[in-house]
Design a protein around this nucleic acid. Structure first.
Lengths: 217, 217
DNA sequence: GTCTATATACAGATAGAC
DNA sequence: GTCTATCTGTATATAGAC
């Protein structure tokens, strides 16, 4: 790995752990095992180094909407939830950084914050659309309110993320919470489905599809 | 307001908006309309100023558990949710700051982060207890899982907070989302209650109490 | 208590040798 | 390309006048 690459990697890690103002070029240089001058030979300023390093984070933030084709609305919702969770688990430290920037509304990372917000919006609108379609085709209950419920699902996912970042002692297994969440959503969206309750209690109209195993991922 | 007070207030605002490293004593002094030296006359160092200023944030972070006495479990849950939301609305900028510190796990605010985490834990355990009692007394459905559902409620609340902080263009009214959330919880906890669905569909056992109006706060 | 003046350290950035 | 040496600004912190 050449010097430029090492600098970029060190910068990404340090900026993400400590934030922009708390990270000095000297520290980046030391971490990358080069001189300060070399850092500024490759990148014209601290800020441009920051921006360039952030591209490392932003690149993987994309949604693969095509993978949803051929799934039922309920499966689509669950897939989106799982994808969101997987993405977070895989990029935890950079997600933590981005969230920090978003919460702080750091001026230095305006691009980053805008990008994150945009992605969030797209994700939510995708959820809304699916909820609308599911309700229209009677897969989901008529009480479903697409816009609000999509926002609530996103909120819960983000909340689970924050919880995961915050809780030092793993009091709850996040995987288990996610399963519980999906189960809750399922009951909420499709109240006609038997949950852990005797099926005899319910007599609603049947959904127009059958469901297989509920085993996790 | 005397100089010390002005310094403290300026410090609280600036630290909370810009973070610790990006805020200089000169800026604090300018904002408080005093000299740099005076700041360090009252506070022995930048870090001690930071810590002292943070007490302003931490003070109001308390839970009034006594106010829950005499309410039904369902009302207790809703009251806790409303209180949480009200608190956030009232202290939005400091909550934003604390959340930023928590997410970043800033070393400078270890006390702060610990306090916030502790408060969060207490809040969640309170919810868990109420859910347990409600389930035991058959006010809540037997499917309720106290620990997990308490965590999910907290997650959703925190997610709504993040959403509120993040969304520049108010696409959804947070008040409306909260109402929808409470309504969702209600259906989830007490599936025997008629929601927007014809009561004829349900035949479960009745809760041991009656419910009055559903009007908001 | 509040100030001006100053010490000291370190930041980001440049010059120029190799 | 990579370095050492250095410039310049600004940060925290101190000294001491009033």
């Amino acid at each position: 790995m050449d010097a430029r690459e090492r600098i970029l990697e060190a910068a990404a890690r340090l900026f993400s752990n400590q934030g922009y103002p708390a990270t000095s070029l000297a520290q980046v240089a030391r971490t990358a095992r080069v001189s300060k001058a070399l850092v500024l030979w490759y990148f014209e300023s601290k800020e441009s180094l920051f921006r360039t390093a952030l591209q490392h984070f932003l690149t993987p933030y994309e949604i693969d909407a095509h993978a949803l084709l051929g799934l039922t609305e309920r499966e689509q919702i669950e897939k989106l939830i799982d994808d969101y969770y997987d993405f977070i688990a895989e990029h935890l430290s950079s997600v933590q950084f981005v969230l920090g920037q978003v919460v702080r509304q750091d001026e230095n990372s305006h691009e980053l914050v805008t990008h994150a917000r945009e992605l969030y919006r797209v994700y939510r609108e995708l959820l809304t659309t699916i909820l609308e379609r599911g309700r229209a085709s009677r897969v989901f209950a008529p009480q479903v309110r697409p816009a609000e419920d999509a926002a609530l699902i996103m909120a819960a996912l983000n909340g689970l993320l924050v919880q995961q970042l915050v809780e030092s002692e793993r009091e709850c297994d996040p995987q288990e919470l996610l399963a519980r969440f999906k189960s809750t959503i399922r009951t909420q969206l499709c109240p006609s489905l038997p949950e852990d309750v005797p099926a005899a209690l319910r007599t609603d109209t049947l959904p127009h599809e059958t469901f297989g195993q509920r085993a996790g991922r």
